[in-house]
Design a binder for these strands. Structure first.
Length: 858
RNA sequence: GGGCCUGUGGCGGAAUGGUAGACGCUGCGGACUUAAAAUCCGUUGUCCUUAGGACGUGGGGGUUCAAGUCCCCCCAGGCCCACCA
């Protein structure tokens, strides 16, 4: 083969330069064009891109380039989620400033992204650690505060006593600080909260209309919001003036109550039992229970008897003990629970341990009361009410209704809706975050927002990490300021915001990134919002995606022009996985250090045997990672993009393999080669379409037009793997086609032009290069998507299967215009079919034109 | 404990209820080459010695002329949430 090898590196850099110089992907609001906003979740600048990024941006790039070709005004921006803990950790380890570390990383990662050849409008690049960025969110914070959507309250937090800081729940591992390893304490601190619960119903209701979101994500959010309908009712505490409010969804079991349980941090717990012996130890024990899943799973239910009795409001003759237990949460409902051990598993376990009564009130269908003798677990299903006075004999839902009516009548309780969703705690005792823009007056502690003209409250540069805790708090001067109202001495808030704050509105900043006055203009928001297609990992299904939805509503209520829903369409991509490797001592090995020899995996260094482990998500700890930059440097961005889009459907996990990337690379070279080889044929073709084509050319044209339609349909449906398969099919059809005359050459050129345009969204550099070699002087990135001719989609002859009694016995070809009767005749006369019928009577024949013939014979 | 998803060749995966396995990876055979690489051609679900059959979409039932696809039950794997009353 004499064809020169395609020079990938040079070509890719050439086209990246041309796109940049021609500003192909820079956009402005243009009322004459329909807009399309493609958004990939913005990366954290860790320093190097990983394969998950490549997958994410390959997907968004296909969408962006495709929609642009379809004539949309496409916005495809990129930025950096640049605040957060890793920068501080790295700074501490390497004695750097978080700011320097972050900006260095951004520069490196940007260079890597540029080498991918993405259709991004880089003029809109945003870094969230820039004071010009967080200035606007400080304004938003104050707006929320003025609207009553941000507030400060004392709450219990995870406190790391060694690091001297609050930890997020995710940073608590098995009840211990993730870095210090010290048992986490629960401590009460003043914390800032956003009132997301105010929008619980709205956020829940809107989910129903979001039909371009995956069901999975909608269900996860629904569960997270956790709306439940129940009743709240009061139990009087005997011989006191106290009442205990309990919340329950099983008010039908009210007559099965045999105890009342309070959360350990319920105000009444201290009040009723504070002076009892052992109380302090008990509370201590409750609080030391870990908050991890496993700890909760294994935690034994422990209780403490207050000695008081509560009176059942519907049956004053019944008095039940009041206990305190570790399994009741203060944060949900009222922090107090009515114990119905016969019909609630947790209550059952608790009652069994403390020898409390277990009175049954619901009889499962078809059972007698002997069912409850020697009961091993709670029965929580439906059945007939027993031992329950006026609701005896009813089923569960009728009984609930009857109790609700009774409560409305007697006013001992009320129907109540409760959400699992809690207000969003945004305070972090960290340096590398957006400062919370408030001051506290020293004289009276008044909390006062920083005036707008004094924003941003900027982070100080001179910090040290010599001591644990928040460097802002121990900075010698930074927090000392004056009250904007009185001029008296005041202290700046030293907490910074949760970094989910930045990611809740960054897609608005992209719309108007240089606006110094406001975060974004109404005009830009009205033109571009909402995001038409958002793409990212499913791990953000709840937090980020829910916070952003809340944020839009909060901004709306503060007078900003934003839609209720930020993301009209959402696509969640699967993980990238890789085989794991280990040496004989069980140490993990990087795939790059392993090679194959005689079918066995061995180390590259000394050929020692390697054992292969499970295919799992790429993670640094298991070393089953590949550096996408190595891949791009070796095979080129086009091959890397192609491979990652090829085999697996984008919403499923993708296993990275060496063989796969090589296959993609071969295809890149093949496309280049077949175009070069066909060039002599293609260049002498006239512009006028010939009037007649050979049979082979007709077939080729049919494939071409089917491909144009099919690839577009596949991209719209996010079936990128199928789009790639169609492109390969088309290239196979092209190589099989041998042009005999000028009409054939015309058809071949038509096929090549379509092929190049179809793979342009996946392999844009190669596409531009080949487009140019076909003699075009236009940029493909600015060229329209090809159109297809409906008439050419169907072939002249159709091949279908013929079944006898549901089993395929032959295939027949017939003219596309053949009638049902003709097709039936051809099918039945087929010798193989005759043989299969074997002289039996034909009961009936089903003919589905273009699909199948089924002969039913007996 | 609750919810969701997935199960198809050696592998990744195709298949509006209508010829199961498109497209690719791997393997095997061949061509070209002094040789290799690259490339090209053929072949590649299982079983029966072949013609030709039989069997095949996690397992078991059902609906239908026809089921990977729809319905019921079960099994396995994965993900998310979780003492949420």
């Amino acid at each position: 083969m004499t064809t020169e090898r395609y020079n990938i590196k040079q070509t890719e850099e050439k086209w990246q330069k041309i796109w940049t110089e021609s500003k192909s992907f820079e956009v402005t609001e243009d009322a004459s064009k329909e807009k399309y906003y493609v958004l990939a979740m913005l990366p954290y600048p860790s320093g190097r891109i990983h394969v998950g990024h490549v997958r994410n941006y390959s997907l968004s790039d296909v969408v962006a380039r495709y929609k642009k070709a379809k004539g949309f005004n496409v916005l495809n921006p990129m930025g950096w989620d640049a605040l957060g803990l890793p920068a501080e950790n790295a700074a501490m380890q390497n004695n750097l400033h978080p700011k320097d570390w972050t900006y260095d990383n951004i520069a490196q990662m940007k260079a890597q992204l540029l080498s991918m050849g993405l259709a991004i409008d880089w003029s809109r690049e945003v870094a969230t650690c820039d004071p010009d960025y967080y200035k606007h969110e400080q304004k938003m914070f104050i707006d929320f505060y003025k609207k009553g959507l941000a507030y400060r309250k004392e709450s219990v937090v995870n406190w790391d006593p060694v690091e001297d800081t609050v930890l997020a729940n995710e940073q608590v591992v098995d009840g211990k600080g993730w870095r210090s390893g010290a048992p986490v304490e629960r401590r009460k601190l003043h914390q800032w909260f956003f009132k997301i619960t105010e929008y619980g119903d709205e956020l829940l209701e809107a989910l129903k209309t979001m039909d371009r979101w995956p069901d999975k994500v909608r269900i996860m959010q629904e569960n997270w919001i956790g709306k439940s309908k129940g009743v709240q009712l009061s139990f009087d505490v005997k011989n006191t003036d106290e009442k205990i409010d309990v919340y329950t969804t099983r008010h039908d079991t009210i007559f099965g109550v045999s105890f009342i349980v309070l959360a350990s941090d319920h105000p009444l717990s201290e009040k009723l039992a504070g002076d009892k012996e052992g109380f302090d130890d008990f509370i201590q024990q409750c609080q030391s229970t870990g908050t991890s899943e496993e700890a909760v799973e294994k935690a034994e239910k422990i209780g403490f008897d207050t000695g008081y009795k509560a009176i059942n409001p519907l049956n004053p003759d019944v008095e039940v003990p009041v206990l305190i237990a570790n399994y009741v949460l203060m944060g949900y409902g009222t922090g107090a629970v009515m114990g119905v051990p016969a019909h609630d598993q947790r209550d059952f376990e608790f009652a069994t341990k403390y020898k409390l009564e277990i009175p049954p009130v619901i009889l499962p269908e078809g059972e007698t009361e002997t069912f409850f003798e020697d009961q091993k677990e709670a029965y929580s299903g439906d059945g007939t009410l027993i031992n329950s006075y006026f609701i005896d004999g009813m089923n569960v839902s009728d009984a609930k209704k009857a109790i609700e009516d009774k409560m409305a009548e007697t006013k001992i309780g009320e129907v109540k809706t409760v959400f699992r969703l809690r207000d969003w705690g945004v305070s972090r005792q960290r340096y590398w975050g957006c400062p919370v823009p408030f001051v506290y007056r020293e004289s009276d502690g008044a909390c006062i927002p920083v005036p707008e003209d004094q924003l941003p409250v900027e982070l100080p540069d001179d910090i040290d990490y010599d001591a644990p805790g928040n460097p802002l708090d121990r900075h010698p001067t930074w927090k000392h300021t004056t009250c904007p109202e009185t001029g008296e001495p005041a202290i700046l808030e030293t907490d910074t915001c949760d970094t989910f704050f930045e990611s809740s509105w960054y897609f608005l900043r992209y719309l108007d990134p240089n606006n110094a006055e406001r975060g974004f203009s109404d005009e830009a928001s009205e033109y571009w919002m909402a995001v038409d297609q958002y793409i990212g990992g499913v791990e953000h299904a709840v937090l980020h995606l829910l916070y952003s939805r809340f944020f839009m509503r909060a901004l709306r209520d503060c007078g900003y022009k934003v839609p209720d829903e930020p993301f009209a369409g959402l696509f969640t991509q699967g993980m990238v996985t890789h085989q794991t490797f280990a040496d004989k001592d069980g140490n993990w090995l990087f795939p790059a250090d392993v090679t194959q020899k005689d079918g066995q995996y061995v180390t590259l260094k000394d050929g020692a045997p390697v054992t292969t482990g499970a295919v799992t998500k790429m993670s640094k700890s298991k070393k089953n990672v590949v550096d996408p930059q190595d891949i791009i440097d070796t095979y080129g961005a086009d091959a890397a993009r192609l491979f990652i889009l090829s085999d697996s459907p984008p919403d499923r996990d993708l296993e990275w393999s060496e063989a796969g990337i090589e296959g993609a690379w071969r295809f890149v070279n093949k496309l280049h080669r077949i175009t070069e080889e066909a060039l002599p044929n293609l260049c002498e073709v006239g512009t006028n379409q010939p009037s007649d084509f050979s049979e082979d050319a007709k077939k080729l044209r049919s494939t071409v037009h089917q491909s144009i339609k099919g690839v577009a349909d596949d991209i719209e449906a996010f079936h990128m793997n199928k789009a790639v398969a169609r492109i390969r099919e088309l290239s196979n059809a092209i190589t099989a086609f041998k042009p005999q005359d000028s009409a054939d050459s015309w058809a071949l050129r038509e096929a090549f032009e379509a092929l190049i345009k179809l793979f342009n969204p996946m392999m844009p550099h190669l596409a531009e290069e080949l487009w140019q070699s076909l003699g075009h002087d236009t940029i493909l990135a600015d060229s329209p998507w090809p159109s297809y001719n409906e008439k050419l989609l169907a072939a002249d002859t159709v091949t279908i299967g013929v079944q006898v009694n549901g089993k395929v016995r032959a295939t027949i070809s017939h003219d596309a215009s053949a009638s049902k009767e003709d097709i039936e005749k051809i099918a039945i006369n087929d010798p193989a079919i005759q043989k299969a019928i074997d002289g039996k009577d034909i009961k009936k024949t089903i003919v589905v034109p273009g699909r199948i013939v089924n002969v039913v014979a007996a």
